[in-house]
Design a protein around this nucleic acid. Sequence first.
DNA 1: GCGACAG
DNA 2: ATCTTGTCGC
Length: 265
Amino acid sequence: MRQVNPEFAPRAGLSRAEMESLQRRVAERAVFEDDLGFDPASVSLGTPKNATLSGGTDVPLVAGIDQSFLDDRALSAVVVLRGDEVVERVHAVTELDLPYIPGLLSFREGGPILDALAKLEHDPDLLVFDGSGRIHFRQAGLATHLGVICDVPSIGVAKSLLCGTPDEAVDGRPEGWHTPIRADGDVDSVGGHSATAETTLGYAFQSRQYDSRPIVNPLYVSPGHRVAAETAVHLVSNLSGGYKLPEPTRLADAYADEAKAQYED
DNA sequence: GCGACAG
DNA sequence: ATCTTGTCGC
């Protein structure tokens, strides 16, 4: 798929200040409102195998993206779904030039992910990333950064909270429960995007819970680009199928491990 | 100086 | 993220 805004692509050799500055420019360009180009209700698993809805529009293509690692190389995996059907899987192995630094994840994994996305024959209507979108110090997490570069609607699904504060305690909640993640002092207001105590950056969302002991932590869902926080949770809910992680992410995760085996000596 | 932090 | 055995439950 094509990079509509390549000027935001993470380049190697930037200073920390330059990376943070680029993130602010990304956040200014990001749209945290619905501009999907498709009906969110048409995104679901268990959609009939036919590729067309009653209205004549195509069922949206949803891509799940995840990484695995081999020494100092990243393996980025992308799985594209139409309903519950896998229509394409691609992966790329890329040298890493940065360590993991909280807040700068897109500079470590962004390049590898773009390499994988470039191999796609199908153009996804929605990108689902493993990590944060707007829930980020400069409101430009991985999902936002890559969503803006591709100018495709995107969502961030993280397994832990980078910053911000949940409205309510998140422990032991039932499936389907969700509560806003509000901006706090760690979050900067950027461009037209405020970061007051009322600003909803995303949601904690309980996708799965068991009747028994081990309490499952919620997911932290946030808008990447061209989607509202409320819609992002709705979409992730629609993409959930019996497991904690939404299906696109779960399949990309499994594919990243599967493909990794082919490169291990 | 202290705290706190996606993958 | 990654390193890893057993164990509990549907």
